[in-house]
Amino acid sequence: MSQLLPYFGVGFLLLSALILWARQSLTTRKGSVALSMPCKRSSGVGSATPRRDLGERIFDPHDWDFVRRETTSGIQRKFQQERTVLAISWLRRTRRQVSFIMRTHALGVRRSKNLQPTMELKLLLSYLSLVMLCDVLIGLIWLRGPVRTRRIVEQTFHWTARLRAAFEQLLAIVDPANHKALETGFNQGTAQS
């Protein structure tokens, strides 16, 4: 029976690829839509929100110190639950931003005749490992709560900021005409998150 495994493996690989492709075909209309996606995000509170990342506020140790000092254990528990929900949604959003970088890259280079397969493979592996790391962080926060995983998350603040800067640089090259608008949309999205 074990000799069947490679064939079933190939069958499942093909089936999974077809399902993902069909799903993408049904949800994506045009590549340009993906490039302009951040601009379409609603900006209801964007302009009023300070530029400081929401992630920093979610994991701010001062909040937890205050709650622990001044409130009962019930409120502390409630605080932790709410912060967990917020932290996970913030990380999911960060993960989407990482994906957005790769999507922008893919859209930018797919017509290039100078595309280098090794470089593409390297980028793909790098992207996949980062997405997995984000998922691990989400899992850790879900299991241990944001207070206990604060130290790890603190480091993600730094890379989110760097990511945004790098993304803007990338976009300035890929799509200079829309860069200004995208920059605004991306900043608003980050501020709201």
């Binding site: 593409e120 980028l123 790098s126 760097r162 990338l170 090259i173």
Partner: peptide, 10 residues
């Protein structure tokens, strides 16, 4: 340039 920027970001 695009590939370098993406690589740097990651």
């Amino acid at each position: 340039l695009i590939a370098e920027q993406t690589s740097r970001a990651l």
